Amino acid sequence: MTAGLTLRLARAVAFAVVCLGLSAVGHLAGGGTVSPRTAVLGAVVALAAALPATGRERGTGAVLALLTGAQAALHVLFSTAPLLPPLAEATGHTHAKLVPDLGMALTHGWAIVMTALWLSRGEAALWAMLRRLAVRLLTMPLADPPVSPRDRRIPVSTPSSLRSAALRHVVIGRAPPSQAA
């Protein structure tokens, strides 16, 4: 199953917003600053990184790799962005090094792994919902004939993906078993 342009853009924007938010919050927590111009540039970088990967469902490994690369690019962008001299002097910010120390690397790594797991579970849930919706729409009859209570059971010829999408605790019929059973 492949995604259309609207779904691709929505997924890429969601990834870019989460990626930019994670990077900006981490950078601000580390004592850095993020100017609006740098944030917009970071959003464009994250969106450009995500858009080619949104054509189909991606697993945890692909999301982790993409998020790691985007976070590294945003770290470099935020670390090398020119600071306003009065703000840099007031905060004592000297975060201009490109290679993070061990504590920052561990914090970045932990945040990236947790965010990648969260995004990949959201990705899996989105695609599962779209698959179930497609099965429902493809197997939906055009006109519903009158249904007797005895005919409300799921037919044997129904695809297994449709049966798995049914609620598990729903009581289909409350009548006694049929004579054939």
Rank of each mutant, 00 (worst) to 15 (best):
Val63Cys: 03
Ile112Phe: 02
Ala116His: 00
Ser79Arg: 14
Gly55Asp: 06
Arg56Thr: 11
Leu66Ile: 03
Ala96Tyr: 04
Ala105Asn: 02
Ile112Pro: 00
Thr33Cys: 08
Val113Thr: 08
Thr68His: 05
Thr94Ile: 04
Gly59Tyr: 07
Met114Arg: 11
Leu64Ile: 04
Phe78Tyr: 15
Gly69Cys: 07
Val44Lys: 10
Ser35Asn: 05
Gly42Tyr: 11
Ala46Phe: 07
Gly31Glu: 09
Met104Trp: 10
Ala73Phe: 07
Gly21Cys: 08
Gln71Ile: 06
Trp118Asn: 01
Val45Tyr: 06
Ala48Leu: 15
Ala111Lys: 07
Val113His: 00
Leu117His: 07
Gln71Phe: 03
His108Trp: 12
Ala88Lys: 08
His108Lys: 03
Thr115Tyr: 00
Val45Arg: 06
Gly31Gln: 10
Gly42Ser: 12
Val44Met: 14
Ala29Ile: 07
Thr33Met: 14
Ala73Tyr: 07
Ala65Ser: 12
Val113Met: 00
Ala65Leu: 15
Gly59Arg: 04
Thr38Gly: 02
Leu83Val: 11
Leu47Ala: 13
His108Phe: 11
Leu117Pro: 00
Thr38Phe: 02
Leu77Arg: 08
Pro86Cys: 05
Pro36Glu: 03
Ala62Leu: 09
Thr115Gly: 00
Gln71Met: 12
Val44His: 08
Val99Leu: 14
Ala48Ile: 04
Val99Pro: 00
Ala24Cys: 10
Val76Asn: 02
His27Ile: 04
Ala39Pro: 00
Thr68Ile: 02
Gly55Asn: 03
Leu119Gly: 01
Pro100Val: 03
Ser35Arg: 13
Val34Gly: 01
Gly31Ala: 09
Leu83Ala: 13
Arg58Asn: 10
Leu67Ala: 08
Leu106His: 01
Gly55Ile: 04
Leu28Glu: 10
Pro52Glu: 11
Thr68Pro: 01
Leu84Met: 05
Gly69Asp: 10
Gly26His: 10
Ala39Cys: 02
Val44Asn: 05
Thr33Gln: 13
Val113Tyr: 00
Thr54Leu: 03
Ser23Trp: 00
Pro86Ser: 04
Ala62Trp: 06
Ile112Trp: 02
Ala90Arg: 11
Ala81Ile: 12
Ala73Val: 09
Ala50Tyr: 12
Ala72Lys: 01
Pro85Asn: 08
Ser35Tyr: 08
Thr68Gln: 01
Ala116Ser: 14
Leu98Ser: 06
Pro86Ala: 07
Val76Leu: 15
Pro86Trp: 13
Met114Leu: 15
Pro52Asp: 11
Arg37Ser: 11
Met104Thr: 12
Met104Leu: 12
Leu51Gln: 07
Gln71Ser: 13
Gly55Gln: 06
Leu102Gln: 04
Gly26Cys: 04
Val44Glu: 05
Gly59Thr: 02
Ala96Asn: 09
Arg56Asn: 03
Arg56Leu: 08
Leu119Tyr: 01
Gly30Ser: 13
Thr115Val: 15
Leu47Val: 06
Ala111Asp: 01
Ala50Thr: 09
Leu117Phe: 13
Leu20Lys: 01
Thr60Leu: 14
Gly92Val: 09
Lys97Trp: 11
Phe78His: 14
Leu22Arg: 03
Ala65Gly: 13
Leu119Glu: 00
Met114Ile: 09
Leu74Tyr: 06
Val25Cys: 08
Leu41Glu: 05
Arg37Ala: 14
Trp110Val: 15
Gly61Asn: 09
Leu41Asn: 03
Ala29Glu: 08
Ala24His: 06
Trp118Ser: 12
Leu84Tyr: 12
